[in-house]
Design a protein around this nucleic acid. Structure first.
Lengths: 189, 189
DNA sequence: TTCCGACTTGATTGGTCATTCAACTAATAC
DNA sequence: GTATTAGTTGAATGACCAATCAAGTCGGAA
């Protein structure tokens, strides 16, 4: 029922939801006070699924923490390609679409971002021996998110994954120049 | 008449435009076939004003090209602070908000981004002597835009400029590690 | 069997919104 | 002074949409 949010909040009518979920308006309003509460529920489901649905599949068989970061970005790349550069990170799109968000909605968006950042920071912590001692790892994790969201935006606007790739490549440059240990990242492409 | 687009396209009703511009619907439709054409006109005006309204004020009295890049980012920072972290880059917001953009609208968005990138690339070209010879300057310019848009998104969502600052700081780290000449950027903060 | 609460149905309501239109004004051309 | 044209007015139109509600269905408890 919650897999159709690539359309945006405003552009998704209740009728769309009803059709897609094959229920009637009355049933929906029996469970949700209003449209916004559906959004909140979706954001909570998304938040709780980040590990299971996003990180685990992306990181299967990948042990190196830095490699994991770029594997995750590669997963977003796949979403972009699969949707003909129409994809936008659901959270990012909503974050910019909702202009006067209710505190509850904004809080759910923040939670989603924060979980994502926690995951990346975990990778950086695991790789801390290879990073300069004075590296602010939380901040660097935020920068990875910044790069992902910005790259997705450019790829979507230009309808060209190349712009996402370029962002990731530049992030890789930063990591290469940051990492001190012998082996840098992975097979650089 | 075109200064009220910080609300988003979908959330801005024709009635809002009419009130803000103090005209009647008939007059508006005398000049514009429809709402979308108003958007296109606004995007064109924005595109044509990038130099005059954005770059020139930001770069007044700043000669160093790298410093100019961060001065421009600082200008966005001001917009964020002035709007209590409600600000979103108009182009970026529209780029993510419009989910099935008419080719004309998307083209105007692209033009806006491209002009911005041209300006940054110009700075990088001017500083090319200080950059590694193999630097892809167009790509690096794109990365600056990525950082700006991603940083704005995070600052808006978290309602906290600190996230924008963090992104800029990390970009600065990249530049510091890229620049080869004696003096790095400017007064680092 | 009866009753009860959980859940469903879908037509209806009230509101908003983009767009239209026929009537109007004013300024310029001839 | 009449005709023409550009621009204006704002009520009316029709579409869409979130939310409501009275009338149902159904399974299980007593």
């Amino acid at each position: 029922m919650h897999l159709f949010w690539e359309k945006g909040y405003g552009s998704t009518s209740i009728a769309d939801i009803l059709k897609s979920a094959d229920v009637n308006s009355g049933s929906l309003y029996h469970f949700f006070p209003g449209k916004q509460d559906v959004l909140v529920a979706v954001l909570e489901a998304y938040r709780d699924g980040i590990g299971e649905m996003l990180l685990n599949p992306a990181w299967e068989g990948v042990a190196d923490p830095i490699e994991r970061i770029f594997k995750l970005l590669d997963r977003y790349r796949h979403s972009i390609v699969e949707t003909d550069c129409t994809y936008g990170c659901p959270i990012g799109s909503l974050a910019l679409e909702i202009h006067e968000p209710d505190p509850i909605v904004r809080e759910r968006l923040v939670e989603n971002f924060t979980r994502w950042l926690d995951a990346i920071e975990g990778c950086l912590d695991a790789a801390s021996a290879r990073l300069p001692a004075d590296t602010d790892r939380r901040e660097l994790a935020q920068f990875v998110l910044t790069t992902m969201e910005g790259g997705v935006m450019l790829a979507r606007t230009y309808r060209n994954v190349g712009h996402f790739d370029a962002s990731v490549r530049q992030l890789k440059v930063l990591f290469e120049r940051l990492l001190v240990s012998p082996r840098a990242t992975t097979n650089d492409n």
